[in-house]
Computed example of a mutant assay.
Amino acid sequence: KANYPRYYRQALDKLAKAQRILSRRKKGSARWNKQRLVVAKLHEKVANQRMNFLHHKSKELASNFDAVVIEDVNMKGMSQALHFGKSVHDNGWGMFTTFLAYKLKEQGKQLVKIDKWFPSTKKCSCCGKEKEMPLSERVYKCSCGFVLDRDHNSAINIKNEGLRLLALS
């Protein structure tokens, strides 16, 4: 679990207030330009905080592990289809994978991307059986008696698939 700090969510109230003030200004006036800069600075601060967090997290992973396995997830589709828009975009997943890739490459380490169609959440990490799982179900329960948190089970499956792909190459 990454425990993203959610910088955009924290700044949402300030941003909303600054944008409301901007919308009430006459476009092109000196006060409008001044307020436009205030809004831009708030957005820039959020972006810088997110980038700093992602740099630190990717450096930590790159220095501690020889290979990192991630799932190649379609974040844009996830944000639109599942109504997680702000939360998904606030994570900066694409930027994180880019940072992680170049930092691992610099150190001669490997980044393994698992296909987005790999059934990581539907597969039992104990026996290998697959079953359908709605997103609302947060605990994975298999017919073999295996019970685990859905995300933890998925992480184990991704790790095992990454090890399999590393062994092939």
Rank of each mutant, 00 (worst) to 15 (best):
N64I: 08
K86P: 06
P119Y: 01
G92C: 02
K109N: 08
G128Y: 04
S120F: 08
E106G: 08
V88R: 01
K103A: 11
K17C: 14
I70F: 07
R6W: 12
H89Q: 07
F99Y: 15
E132G: 11
A18S: 14
S87K: 05
F96M: 00
L42G: 15
C142N: 06
R24D: 05
E137R: 06
D13R: 14
W117S: 00
E44C: 11
S87M: 11
C142I: 03
E71H: 11
S87P: 05
Q107H: 09
L82M: 13
L22K: 04
V139C: 10
L111A: 01
E106W: 06
K26I: 12
N160H: 07
K17T: 11
V46Y: 07
Y140S: 06
T98A: 10
S87Y: 06
N153S: 05
R164I: 04
N91M: 14
R20H: 13
K34N: 13
Q110V: 15
S87D: 08
H89C: 15
D13L: 14
D151A: 02
W117P: 00
A40K: 12
L15W: 07
L37H: 08
S58Y: 11
R36Q: 14
G128E: 09
D151T: 01
R31V: 10
D151K: 05
N33D: 11
K105H: 07
K26G: 12
H83G: 09
L100F: 01
K26S: 10
K26P: 08
H43C: 13
E44Q: 08
L104H: 04
K57D: 09
D13F: 12
N157I: 03
L54I: 00
S58N: 04
M51V: 15
S63V: 07
K159W: 01
M133F: 13
E130I: 08
V112T: 04
C126D: 06
A67T: 03
C127W: 06
S120Y: 03
G92L: 02
F99S: 04
F118V: 01
N64M: 07
Q80P: 15
E60T: 05
R36K: 14
K1N: 10
M75I: 14
D66L: 08
D115H: 01
K57C: 06
Q10Y: 15
A155M: 01
S169W: 03
A47E: 11
A101C: 14
E130K: 09
Q35N: 10
K45H: 09
D72T: 04
W117V: 00
T121Q: 00
K76L: 15
C142V: 01
P134L: 15
L104Y: 01
K129H: 12
N3F: 13
A18K: 05
Q80T: 10
H56T: 15
G145Q: 05
K129I: 13
I21H: 06
K113G: 03
P119M: 00
K1Y: 09
Y140N: 02
F99G: 02
M78V: 08
G162S: 02
R24F: 12
G145H: 03
I156L: 02
Q19W: 14
P5Q: 01
P5V: 02
D90K: 09
T97W: 01
N157F: 01
I21P: 07
Q35M: 02
K59E: 12
G92W: 02
A167Q: 11
E130R: 13
R150Q: 05
E44M: 09
E106H: 09
K109R: 03
K45T: 11
N91W: 12
I158Y: 00
F118D: 03
E106C: 08
G85K: 10
K59Q: 10
L168K: 09
K86N: 15
N52S: 04
S143P: 09
